[in-house]
């Protein structure tokens, strides 16, 4: 499954939903992890409420919590899966009063034009 003889394609995962209210964020992350086995050129972008997926300090499993898995920790495992290109939308961050120091992984901040360019460069876009 390592892309042997195959062409490496550029895959972009677009994440636009907050983490726990709907299943989108978790589903996206699971597809990213499974897809990592195919060793393609993967990027993740976080736009709109999607930036909240990366917020530091999420507490979900403590006795008083909402009682689901804190999958924000899993984004930190992506590097080990060779998924290293994570981007956030500048305006979405600003609108929410967030800076990169509020996030639990290293990301690159893209402005409108840079984000549009990144999308235009992809072979496959998976939207969540």
């Amino acid at each position: 499954m390592d892309g042997e003889g195959g062409v490496i394609k550029k895959f972009l995962y677009v994440n636009r939903k907050a983490p726990y209210g709907t299943i989108y964020a978790l589903e996206s992350l699971e597809v990213v992890l499974i897809g990592a086995a195919f060793e393609q050129d993967v990027s993740l972008v976080f736009i709109d409420d999607g930036v909240y997926q990366l917020k530091k300090g999420q507490q979900t499993t403590v006795d008083s919590g909402i009682g689901v898995k804190d999958f924000s920790k899993t984004y930190r495992a992506l590097e080990g899966y060779d998924v290293e290109k994570l981007y956030v939308d500048k305006k979405s961050m600003e609108m929410r009063g967030l800076s990169t120091s509020d996030l639990n992984v290293d990301v690159e901040v893209l402005d409108d034009a840079q984000m549009a360019d990144l999308m235009a460069q992809q072979d496959i876009i998976l939207s969540f």
Binding site: L33, A36, A37, K69, D70, K73, T74, A77, G80
Partner: peptide
């Protein structure tokens, strides 16, 4: 405990 997933064998 750190990442909340069981790693794939390669990882």
């Amino acid at each position: 405990n750190e990442y909340q997933i069981a790693p794939a064998v390669r990882v």
